[in-house]
Amino acid sequence: MIRLARYLIPLFVFLGMCVFLYKGLYADPTIRKSEVLSKPFPVFELPDLEDVQILHTNEIFDGKVTLVNVWGVWCITCAIELPYLTALSENGLTVVGLYYDQDIDPNFGTKTLTRVRQEVAETVSRYGNPFAFNIFDVFRDTALDLGVTGAPESFLVDENGVIRVHHLGDINPRVWRQKFSPVLNEIAPSIEASIALMNDAITGAQAGIGEGVSGE
C-alpha cells in the first residue's frame, strides 16, 4: 500500500501540474478586474465635443440608465461597433460618447478641434450615430479615472450614477447577452426586453445565413 502510494503520489502531482499548466496555456493575460465596478462614475466636468461652451457633469446620469462609450475616430474597433450601438440606442438605451483624440494632445501632435469634429461627423454618418452627445475628454483625465486602457471601452451607468458594467473591447450581441443583459434586466427591464428581441432577430438572421451556406 505504502509502496503503491510512493509511485502514485508523484503521478498525481504530475497530473495536477499538467492541468494547471494546460489551463495557463489558454488563460488570457489581458483580463483584469475592473477597479471602478460598482463605484460611482468619477466626478467630471467636461465640454461637449460639438460646442465647448456646454459643460457636462455627472448630472447627465440622473434618472436614466446610460451607456458610456469611450471612443475615437482613430480606433477601428470603435467604428465596427457603431452600427450595433446605434441599434441599442434605437431600442431606448441612452448612449453617450466619451470622445478622446490622441492628435490634439501635446504628446501626439496637432489637430484642430474643427478637424476632429469633421472626422467624427464623417465616421458617424458612415457607420451610424448612437450618441445622444459626445463628451470631449480633453486631457483624457476622465479616461484615466475610469481605468481605461484603450478604446473602445464601455460603461453601463445606472440612474444613481454608479458603474454597473465595465467592458473592454467592442459590444456585439454575444457580449451583450453575457455581460450587459443580466444587469440591464435588473435596472431597466423594459429596455432590456426590447434589446433582447432585437438580439434574437440578429442571431436568427445570422443562423439563417449559416444554414443557407451549409445547404449549398
Binding site: 465640454p47 501635446p106 504628446n107 501632435g109 496637432t110 484642430t112
Partner: peptide, 19 residues
C-alpha cells in the same frame, strides 16, 4: 505640457513638439 489649461482655450494652444 500644461495640464491646468481650460478646454475653452484649446484652439489657442501653441504648436507642441511630438515627444
Amino acid at each position: 505640457p500644461q495640464p491646468g489649461q481650460t478646454p475653452a482655450g484649446l484652439q489657442e494652444r501653441p504648436k507642441q513638439e511630438y515627444a
